[in-house]
Simulated scan of single mutants.
Amino acid sequence: MLAAYAQDPGAYHQAQDDFGGPQGLLRSAAAAIEQSGPDDPGKSPGAAGDDETQALSQFASSTGLWLDPTGIRDFMATHAMRSGSEHKVAHFLSQNRVVKDLDVQAVATESLFDYRTDHLLSNYLFQDSIHLEGFYLYDGRLHIVVSQPFVEGVHPPWAALKEGLEARGLHHESPNSLIPSFTVGDSLNCHLCINDLHENNVILDTNGELHPIDAHFYFNTRAERVEALTNLGLWPTASPSE
């Protein structure tokens, strides 16, 4: 999509063909790092990060999804939007999508595996369309580039956010607080804890619908996360979907 692949301009479409579409490509990138790092969150995070970074770099090489650092950084600067704590953000006007650039050293989740599989869960639970675009190296550090649809709207106040998410079947964990954590599970094959759904991570569109744009999902262990993904049909043998 970004036409800035270092080796083959057609690498993005070829990778999607090879892995069964955007969802299959996301899942395959996550599978490439499933065995990297410890099962318990917070245990040896530095070593886990190094292992995951190496595994993702190997995945990038095997798929040809290395982006040209100069091209992608110029694109991000030219089309910059307000950045968050994790990502630099740009608007890809011709595709009506938002491009997000993550320096893996700035990831807010316990691991890169969590970051990758959070996208699978967001696509499933919130009907998002997060795509993996590619990777690049800058100053010796790995960057992951993803995109998702641009949503025209505003960030809602907390009361409207809470009411809207509860109307979608989510349950606020602390009803008398402003802690942005919710759970869902009544209609699923598993129980999900969703964190970080504060006002800046949710958009209220012009039709009055809420769109979580940067949700994080919490599990006690990696094994529990994989079990939930499997129960939802997202891991590892789910049918590819766009």
Rank of each mutant, 00 (worst) to 15 (best):
A77L: 09
F75M: 03
M81C: 11
D68Q: 04
L67F: 05
A80H: 10
L93T: 15
T70N: 12
S83Y: 09
F75S: 05
A90C: 12
D74Q: 14
L67D: 04
W66P: 03
L65A: 10
G64I: 08
F75K: 02
H79I: 00
L67R: 02
E86Q: 14
F75G: 00
D68N: 15
S83T: 13
L67V: 05
T78N: 11
P69R: 01
F75I: 01
D74C: 05
T78E: 15
G71D: 02
W66I: 09
A77S: 15
M76W: 00
H91Q: 06
H87T: 11
M76T: 01
T78W: 01
G71Y: 02
M76P: 01
W66M: 12
A90F: 06
S85H: 07
T70L: 11
A77W: 08
H79M: 02
L67G: 04
P69K: 03
K88L: 12
W66C: 06
T70H: 12
P69V: 00
A90P: 03
L93D: 14
I72D: 00
G71T: 01
L93Y: 13
W66H: 09
R73F: 04
W66Q: 06
W66A: 11
G84D: 04
L67W: 05
F75L: 12
A80I: 09
L93M: 11
R82E: 13
A80M: 07
L65Q: 11
H79D: 07
H79G: 01
P69N: 02
E86M: 08
H87W: 10
S85Q: 08
R73M: 13
A90H: 04
D68M: 01
S85L: 06
L93S: 15
A90G: 03
A90K: 00
A80E: 12
A90R: 00
M76V: 10
D74W: 05
M76N: 02
K88A: 13
P69T: 04
D74N: 14
A90Q: 00
V89H: 08
W66G: 04
L67A: 05
K88I: 04
H91C: 05
F92D: 14
V89Q: 10
M76Q: 07
D74K: 12
H91F: 15
T70S: 13
V89D: 10
F92Y: 14
M81P: 07
K88S: 13
I72E: 00
M81E: 13
F75Y: 09
G64M: 01
A80S: 14
M81T: 08
E86R: 07
L65H: 09
